[in-house]
Amino acid sequence: MQRLLKYLTLYDKILIVSLIIVNVFFILFPLYHVYTGNQDEVGKGYIVIRNNGKVEKKIPVARTFREDPLLIEVEGRIGTSIIEAINGEVRLKEAPPEDPQKICEKTGWISRPGPSIICVPNQISITIEAGEDGLDGVSW
């Protein structure tokens, strides 16, 4: 560590420290309204699936509170992506086999506005956006 510090110039240190501070700050306080309008609690709002930049499906999160998962197939640029939603959470279950890296599958479940599932090869994105009916939960 001390050797490393020796190699760093003053400007290196300023650069690194400010990068860390600014980004830690944005991680702690994400600008939710820039992404989705407002931060919200789980179970509210809509699951928004975009295909090639256009909103293809908008599903109320409340509709995912059910016994069996809601499966949605979306025909993207290179193939069919299968999206799974249940109990207020959504994930990309299966990327098309043509997708070499399948980064969107690895993203896993999202349940609140902010994180998004992005499939660049298939041009599909999934986000949760704030909605009107502010519920804490649904009894079913």
Partner: peptide
């Protein structure tokens, strides 16, 4: 570029995480 392909501003959510990771890997 990913933003222009996907047209979803939410993609920038990950940027601070990526940059934070870029600091140690860059070093």
């Amino acid at each position: 570029v990913a933003y222009f392909i996907i047209a979803n501003i939410g993609i920038y959510y990950y940027l601070p995480y990526l940059i934070l990771l870029a600091v140690p890997t860059g070093i």
